[in-house]
């Protein structure tokens, strides 16, 4: 195994261990059952599971990572489509989306066919969905229904697939597996989420978007984004970037991740639900967990490809 990767994994699981320890102490100290602490512990437990799954997949290799991301897209799509509450007329198009387009997108990324993987869903997927929907002859709400299926594919599959696509970038002068770059992206994004939550809970006063997400505050946003960017900057040795480039990339990733959370909140508000699902205990659904990756991965991927590949 790459020595840097070893250190990285060591640090991640050490931090998780510390978090679990703190969680346990807090639980013992509070006399009555405290909902916040229970939620915190459920989250930490889920973090263990997610980190183990993710690390294993990445260690086994790019193919396994793609399988993991395909599954994540599948579950995200399932949550998204559940919110759409599709009618009879959408059935066939959705079958294509789940069982043909989603696996094909990841297959194209896996064989390294960059051009086709980048246009497959936005061009061919978005051409085929309205055609398939029209073939059913169901015209009620046709435009809205078709647009939703297209958007579901973009959000849950296309954008997400940019993250594992990092593994197949050829970066001259960058030693070591690209898996480290994927780790960089995921760690910065998730740290940003966690730190925004922590800063918001401790110092948060002024809501940043009260109608969308009352829990998000200016203090949480600024504190979380800046501190997560520092974490990203500190990790510059595992990336092909210099320290200030790593810091800038992290800042960008964090800001996009924040917007991702905001967009997903708007979708949930629109449909009147709190979470996309209950797939991960304490975290809600798959989409609740990966919303910030969805929005940061494409930008990060293309910038790295443009400047470093």
């Amino acid at each position: 195994m790459d020595p840097q990767l070893k250190i990285l994994l060591g640090v991640i699981f050490l931090l998780l261990g510390i978090a679990s320890g703190i969680g346990r102490v807090l639980e013992k100290r509070s006399e009555k059952a405290n909902a916040v602490i229970r939620n915190l512990n459920a989250r930490i437990k889920a973090w263990w599971v997610m980190c183990i799954f993710f690390s294993l997949a990445v260690l086994i290799g790019p193919k396994m990572t793609l399988v993991l991301f395909t599954l994540m897209s599948f579950l995200a799509l399932r949550e998204f489509v559940t919110l759409i509450a599709p009618g009879r007329g959408d059935h066939r198009a959705l079958f294509w989306a789940f069982f043909v387009i989603t696996p094909l997108q990841y297959y194209l990324i896996g064989i390294g066919w960059y051009g086709l993987s980048m246009i497959f869903i936005p061009v061919f997927g978005c051409l085929w969905m309205p055609i398939r929907n029209a073939l059913t002859g169901e015209t009620e709400d046709y435009m809205a229904r078709t647009a939703l299926v297209q958007w579901a594919l973009m959000i849950c599959v296309y954008f997400v697939s940019h993250a594992p696509a990092l593994l197949f970038l050829d970066i001259p002068g960058y030693a070591g597996p690209n898996a480290k770059l994927l780790f960089f992206l995921v760690i910065v994004v998730q740290m940003s989420d966690v730190l925004q939550y922590v800063w918001g809970k401790t110092l948060g006063k002024h809501p940043i978007a009260p109608s969308l997400s009352p829990g998000k505050t200016i203090e949480g946003f600024v504190g979380g984004v800046l501190s997560a960017s520092l974490v990203g900057m500190a990790m510059f040795r595992i990336t092909p970037f210099s320290w200030w480039q790593a810091g800038l990339f992290s800042l960008l990733i964090c800001i996009m991740g924040f917007f991702g959370g905001l967009v997903m909140s708007a979708i949930k508000r629109d449909r009147g639900v709190k979470d996309f699902g209950s797939f991960i205990e304490g975290h809600g659904g798959m989409l609740d967990r990966i919303d910030s990756i969805i929005f940061s991965a494409p930008l990060f991927f293309h910038l790295v490809r443009f400047y470093f590949s």
């Binding site: 599948f74 799509l77 399932r78 949550e79 489509v81 559940t82 509450a85 599709p86 009879r88 059935h91 959705l94 079958f95 789940f98 069982f99 699902g277």
Partner: peptide
Amino acid sequence: ENLNRVLPKGEVLPVPLI
């Protein structure tokens, strides 16, 4: 709830939904 959407009447292939 929702199972009718997973496999509506007359369809052979299912679509995943919660």
